[in-house]
Design a protein around this nucleic acid. Structure first.
Lengths: 197, 197
DNA sequence: ACCTGAACACCGTTCAAGT
DNA sequence: ACCTGAACACCGTTCAAGT
C-alpha cells in the first residue's frame, strides 16, 4: 500500500501536511480544499470527511503551530543554565519558530483568541504566555527581574519577541541579521526588566 | 447627484471605504470584488476599471494604513514636550492605530516588504522605522538613550510596540487594560534603552 | 467508515459592447 | 472615460450513492 495509501486512514494527516506546504508557498489565499484534494489524488469532497470546512483546516494548523511553539519554549525555559540565559533562550526559540514557520505564525495571530473562538486554541495561546510568566517569576525570586505581576511582565516580554519576529518575517530588518536584532532586543528587554520601577 | 453619485469618478474611493468596513467586519477572506460592487450598486465588473485585481484593493488599503500610521507617529514625535515623553507618545500612537484599525494592521504585516513588492509600500513601511530612529537619535544626544546605531535601536522599539499591539488585537491581554499594558511596555522599553550596554 | 460524482451558489477575471 | 452583461474557470459545501 505504498502510493495509494492515503485512502487508509491518514488522509487527515496528509491534508494538514500538504496544507502547511501550500500555506508557506502560496499564502492563505492560495490554500483551497479542492487544491489539496487534487494534490493528494482524492476527490474534491474527500476532505469534508476530515474537516468540517476550510476554516477547520486552518484551525488545525494553528493548533499544531501553538503546540510546537509551546514545546520549544518549554524546552528552553526548563533547560540547564542560569535563569537569565534561559530567558534569552526562550526568546530565541520563539524567533526561531517564527522564522521556520513564518506563514503559520501569521495565521496563529490572525485568529482571535477571545472567549468564543475555540477553548483549545485559546488555552494553547495562553500557555505560551504562562511559560514566560513562570520563568519571570523564577527570575524575580533570584533578583534578576524587578518585582511586579509576572503575568504583566510576561506580556511585555512576549510583545518584544513577537514584534521582532513580525519585523523579521515582514522583511523590515533590512540588512540586519535576525540573530543580531534578536540579541539586541533581548538585551534591551532584560535590562528593562531588571531596572526597578 | 446624491444617491447614484458613485458613477461620477469616486467609485475608487467608495470601493476602498467599503472595503475597509468589510475587512473589519468579515476579515480578509470575506472581502470580494463582487460583494463590494453589489454593496455599491454597480456591476460586478466595474471595480476592474479602478483596480487591476483583488490584491490591488488590498494593496491600496495597506498604503492608506501606513500613510495614516506614519502621520500619527510623526505628529507624536514632533510634538512639544521632552524627548522621553514624545517617545512614549509615539508608542501610544502606534497602539492606538492598531486598536482602531486592527484588521488593517494585520494586512499591513501580512504583506512582505521585500525588495520586489512595490517600492511605494516598502518605502512607507520603512518610514515608520525612520521616524522612530530619528527620535531615538535625538534622545541619544540628550543622554536619555544608550549609544548605538539608532536604526537598530528603532527596530527594538518598534518590535515592542508592534508586538503589544498584536497581543491586544489578538485578545491575549485578557483582563489587562490595553493602556496599562502599553504603559508598562513603554516603561520597560525606555528603561532598557537607557541602560548602557 | 470512507470516498465519489453531481449539483448549487459563489467568486475573480476578461472582453466585446454600450453610453 | 466609464460601466454593463456574458462567459469561463475556479472554489466551498452538501448530499445521495457507492464500496
Amino acid at each position: 500500500m505504498a502510493e495509494g495509501s492515503y485512502h487508509h486512514g491518514n488522509l487527515r494527516a496528509a491534508l494538514l501536511e500538504r496544507a502547511e506546504t501550500v500555506l508557506a508557498e502560496s499564502g492563505v489565499a492560495g490554500l483551497s480544499l479542492r487544491g489539496l484534494a487534487r494534490d493528494l489524488g482524492v476527490s474534491h469532497a474527500a476532505p469534508a470527511r476530515h474537516f468540517r470546512d476550510r476554516q477547520a483546516v486552518l484551525d488545525a494548523l494553528v493548533v499544531s503551530g501553538f503546540t510546537d511553539l509551546n514545546r520549544r519554549m518549554r524546552a528552553a525555559a526548563e533547560g540547564p543554565g542560569p535563569v537569565q540565559r534561559r530567558m534569552a533562550d526562550v526568546g530565541r526559540a520563539y524567533v526561531g519558530f517564527a522564522i521556520e514557520r513564518a506563514a503559520l505564525l501569521g495565521l496563529m495571530f490572525t485568529a482571535k483568541h477571545e472567549e468564543g473562538s475555540g477553548e483549545e486554541l485559546r488555552q494553547l495561546a495562553h500557555t505560551s504566555l504562562e511559560i514566560a510568566a513562570r520563568l519571570l517569576a523564577e527570575a524575580q525570586r533570584g533578583g534578576a527581574v524587578r518585582p511586579g505581576d509576572p503575568t504583566r511582565l510576561a506580556q511585555v516580554a512576549f510583545s518584544t519577541v513577537h514584534g521582532l519576529a513580525a519585523l523579521a518575517v515582514g522583511g523590515l530588518l533590512d540588512d540586519t541579521p535576525v540573530d543580531d536584532a534578536t540579541d539586541l532586543a533581548l538585551e534591551v528587554l532584560l535590562a528593562g526588566l531588571r531596572a526597578p520601577r
